[in-house]
Computed example of a mutant assay.
Amino acid sequence: MTWLEQTMVGFDTETTGVSTSNDRIVTAAVITRTGSGASASVDARTWLINPGVPIPVGATAVHGITDAMVQAEGQSPADALEEIASILAGALSAGFPVVAFNAQFDVSILEAELARHGLPSLASRLATDDIRPVVDPLVLDRHLDRWRRGKRKLVNMCETYGVPVVADDLHAADADVLATLDVIQAIAVRYPKLGEVALTDLHDQQVEAHRKWATEFSAWLTSKGTVDDLPSPSWPV
């Protein structure tokens, strides 16, 4: 039995913006799934969080979460973040992979939010003091199909790998997690050797794959005159 047939823990956030240092989480989902298809066992947790700051109109246009919604029904950030970090730490400590699309963003903003609210980091909750194993379909796709043209957003990846989704449902954290878990399974169908790689080795391979992509992409952007907001070569944080 490969890791693809065992328990995975999907994770996604929707936020006030795209800065992992300054923006806030407004909703999150953690979905634990064992197996795939109709026989899969699924346990889902979602959080609506009052970030304590106004949600920009542009962010609301993406995920549909408004100030009125979080003020009326949102959980306090400290309580929600502690619950999220505890679940993820428990999964990682048990050896279950955390699967996230563009994991660098979601893990980094979670760590920043935990620090902002005086809570222990996810890394510090783990015996290795290292957030692993993480599986990121975006990193894997960039590495395995490097020269494919076109966008690589989640909706594009679903189309590429034949994962049926309703586009309007995406950008809800729970829908994004389910799609991400399906995409990783679909990638493994196309690249069956993926399941043969031990999770610890796969994690390290993704670290190197992301570093290489970020370094090369940054060089290309710089050559075009862009020197701000270059991708960080570190992963998953």
Rank of each mutant, 00 (worst) to 15 (best):
R149D: 02
R149H: 04
R149L: 08
R149V: 09
K151N: 08
K151Y: 03
K151F: 01
K151M: 05
K151I: 00
K151G: 01
R152G: 04
K153Q: 13
K153W: 05
K153S: 07
K153I: 02
K153M: 06
L154D: 05
L154I: 13
L154V: 12
V155P: 00
V155Q: 05
V155N: 04
V155T: 09
N156F: 15
N156Y: 14
N156S: 08
N156V: 04
N156C: 02
N156D: 14
M157P: 03
M157R: 04
M157N: 05
M157Q: 09
C158R: 02
C158M: 00
E159Q: 12
E159F: 10
E159K: 11
T160R: 15
T160P: 08
T160I: 03
T160F: 13
Y161L: 01
Y161V: 03
Y161S: 04
Y161T: 02
Y161R: 03
G162C: 12
G162D: 08
G162H: 02
G162K: 02
G162M: 14
V163W: 00
V163N: 01
V163D: 05
P164G: 05
P164Q: 15
P164Y: 04
P164E: 09
V165E: 00
V165S: 07
V165R: 02
V166C: 05
V166D: 07
V166M: 06
V166R: 08
V166Y: 05
A167E: 12
A167D: 11
A167R: 14
A167F: 06
D168N: 07
D168G: 15
D168Y: 08
D168I: 06
D168A: 15
D169V: 03
D169C: 06
D169M: 11
D169F: 13
L170W: 13
L170G: 08
L170M: 11
L170Y: 01
L170H: 07
H171W: 05
H171A: 01
H171D: 13
H171C: 09
H171R: 13
H171S: 13
H171P: 10
A172P: 13
A172Q: 14
A172W: 09
A172R: 13
A173S: 08
D174W: 12
D174S: 15
A175K: 15
A175N: 14
D176L: 11
D176K: 07
D176S: 07
D176A: 12
D176R: 06
V177G: 01
V177A: 01
V177D: 00
V177W: 01
L178I: 10
L178Q: 10
A179S: 12
A179T: 02
T180G: 10
T180W: 00
L181P: 15
L181R: 11
L181M: 15
L181Y: 12
L181N: 12
D182K: 14
V183L: 01
V183I: 11
V183T: 12
V183G: 04
V183R: 08
I184Q: 12
I184T: 11
I184C: 09
I184W: 08
I184A: 04
I184D: 04
I184S: 06
Q185P: 15
Q185Y: 10
Q185N: 14
